[in-house]
């Protein structure tokens, strides 16, 4: 019998997950070593512009709602080499982090304005607006919401003429490993869109490496 491949998950649906666990689920496409590539639109009123971007996940700690990695911007004007930054991410899990940023110059209004740009947020919006989404069960939700904040430049000095003052609102799709994001920095063009897809290092298939800290 043919089976319809349709997403039916909703945030309140709990099936087969560990009782009491409401954290976002582990997803192999968002595990250490995974790579993504795509673009960041940095268009301004003056001109249309997009930078090619590569991302690599270096650390994931779901219990603490933490992940981190590097972001490489490839065709940055005025930069001789690709610019690599290290970022740390907060996973919105309602335990460690909520949808409200509460820092980095982002108000609750800014938060809602950005989250609502992700279609997958619409199912959560009313609860988030009511109580910050504190009682949401995200353990079976096929999207993972995060904030990524760049911490330092890896291969260039701070005098490179670039800024990492802002942060990204990010939505990851557990289904296909795609990442959408919006850069937020009150001093930069608003809603710079980040679009990334899972890459396979040129392989006809998916490969997964791993490390384990002691």
């Amino acid at each position: 019998m043919p089976v319809r491949v349709v997403e039916t998950s909703s945030p309140s649906q709990v099936s087969g997950t560990t009782p009491g666990n409401t954290l976002p689920p582990p997803c192999t496409l968002l595990s250490v070593g995974q790579a993504f590539s795509g673009t960041q639109n940095v268009s301004s009123l003056q001109k249309d512009e997009a930078w090619r971007v590569n991302v690599r996940i270096q650390g994931v700690d779901l219990d603490h709602g933490y992940l981190c990695g590097t972001m490489e911007a490839l065709n940055v004007p005025m930069a001789d080499t690709p610019v690599v930054t290290f970022w740390e991410g907060e996973i919105v899990d309602t335990k460690n982090y909520t949808f409200f940023t509460g820092k980095w110059g982002a108000s609750a209004e800014d938060d809602i304005k950005h989250w609502t740009k992700f279609p997958s947020f619409s199912l959560l919006q009313s609860e988030v607006e009511a109580d910050g989404g504190k009682s949401l069960d995200l353990s079976n939700y096929p999207h993972i919401f995060m904030r990524w904040k760049e911490q330092y430049f890896v291969n260039v000095g701070t005098d490179c003429g670039l800024t990492i003052a802002g942060f990204y609102y990010v939505c990851f799709s557990c289904s296909d490993g795609s990442i959408n994001g919006f850069y937020y920095d009150p001093n930069s063009s608003p809603f710079q869109k980040l679009e990334l897809k899972s890459t396979n290092d040129g392989r006809p298939g998916f490969s997964f490496s791993s490390y384990e800290l002691q």
């Binding site: 491949v5 099936s15 997950t17 192999t28 557990c174 289904s175 296909d176």
Partner: peptide, 21 residues
Amino acid sequence: LKDMVNDPCLDVKLRTRMALG
């Protein structure tokens, strides 16, 4: 594999659907 489209683990469920696709 077809029995696993509603696996309790979301990752398994989504990968199963990907494979069946």
